[in-house]
Design a protein around this nucleic acid. Structure first.
Length: 319
DNA sequence: AAAGAATACAACCGCCGCTTC
DNA sequence: AGAAGCGGCGGTTGTATTCTT
């Protein structure tokens, strides 16, 4: 006998989330933390299944998400990680703070794939397209989940490491991957840090940087001030109301993923600062007359003991 | 200006491994 | 021990937006 079903699937709402639903979900999670997703819809009054709530939160509502296009640096990270991990988007995403697997997957399918093809690189094998095309055309589905071991035998084409990224790397806080010690053979296990090897990559010189707006590092890691450069062109009526409200962007700790240092939580994230909280107040209280919701975020942060605000916990989806 | 095509991305679906009972 | 649920993941789809003609 297993557990109770997560939700009876009758009468559940599907499709795009409304601002009202978002508010409910945010309010619930900020006051209760992420407990079991099964319980979230019932307790928060949402007519969604827990899975849908989790997805909405992790892919869209989480305050630690970066918005906008992936920077060139991030894009190269993705390419290199993809060369090593294949379509394991969540693993790839775990190396890119503030990015979700869904976002990376979408970006890969819409931008990077095309770029690589344009550059003559097969996006699946990361080898020169002339050979790889024939291969993939003959065996179209085969390598989507190519095992790591196999990929290690098919090293990606060498790509030059653009000096621009040296700069971006230094600006972009310390990446959790170590570029210096990187070789593909170091990628022993999925969960170990897998280091890109940009130093030896030369093909990236052909990267069409003019096709993609370059986001400078200081645009990616904004200080915690309301963003005036939201990428949203359609404001107001969408479910994208978080952007409309110009919630503060989010700054990762320099020592993201550095367990030895992360014990000291309070310095790690500037997320829950006063400004963010006041934005949330706006978010929750802006249009309803539901008085008992008001002041939810007026209280000091210490009243939310379940929220551990270090970046690692956020990254792990834990409170 | 309008229509059709292309693009971007949020959300869903289904599978899988782990956990619970 | 094994049936069944849960959470997470990757693939796919639907739709809104942007671009092109």
């Amino acid at each position: 006998m297993g557990r109770q079903p997560c939700c009876d699937k009758v009468g559940l709402k599907k499709g795009p989330w409304t601002a009202e639903e978002d508010k409910k979900l945010i309010s619930f999670i900020l006051t209760n933390g992420q407990c079991c997703w099964r319980a979230v819809p019932k307790l928060s009054g949402l007519l969604r299944c827990g899975k849908s709530c989790r997805l909405r939160w992790t892919n869209y509502l989480r305050p630690d998400l970066k918005r906008g296009l992936l920077s060139e640096y991030e894009e190269k990270m993705v390419i290199d990680l993809h060369a090593q991990l294949g379509n394991r988007w969540s693993k790839i995403a775990s190396h890119l703070p503030g990015r979700t697997d869904n976002e990376i997957k979408n970006h890969w399918n819409t931008h990077i794939k095309k770029k690589l093809k344009k550059m003559g690189i097969d996006p699946v094998t990361h080898k020169a397209l002339s050979n790889a095309t024939e291969q993939t055309q003959n065996q179209p589905q085969q390598q989507l989940h190519q095992p790591l071991e196999e990929q290690q035998n098919q090293q990606p084409l060498p790509v030059d490491f653009d000096h621009k990224f040296e700069h971006e790397k230094s600006q972009n806080k310390k990446p959790e991957t170590s570029f210096e010690s990187s070789t593909i053979t170091e990628a022993k296990e999925d969960d170990k840090i897998i280091a890109p090897e940009f130093e030896t990559m030369e093909l990236m010189n052909g990267f069409c940087t003019d096709e993609v707006p370059i986001i400078e590092a200081d645009e990616i890691l904004m200080p915690c001030v309301p963003s005036s450069s939201s990428t949203s062109t359609s404001s107001s009526n969408s479910t994208n109301f978080l952007e409309d409200l110009h919630l503060p962007d989010f700054e990762w700790s320099c020592n993201y993923n550095d367990n030895s240092i992360n014990n000291n939580n309070e310095d790690n994230m500037a997320l829950w600062d006063d400004e963010f909280i006041s934005c949330l107040n706006l978010l929750i209280n802006d249009d309803d007359d539901d008085d008992d919701k008001k002041q939810v975020f007026d209280a000091p942060l210490t009243q939310y003991p379940r929220m551990v605000v270090d970046s690692e916990s956020w990254a792990c989806g834990l409170f």
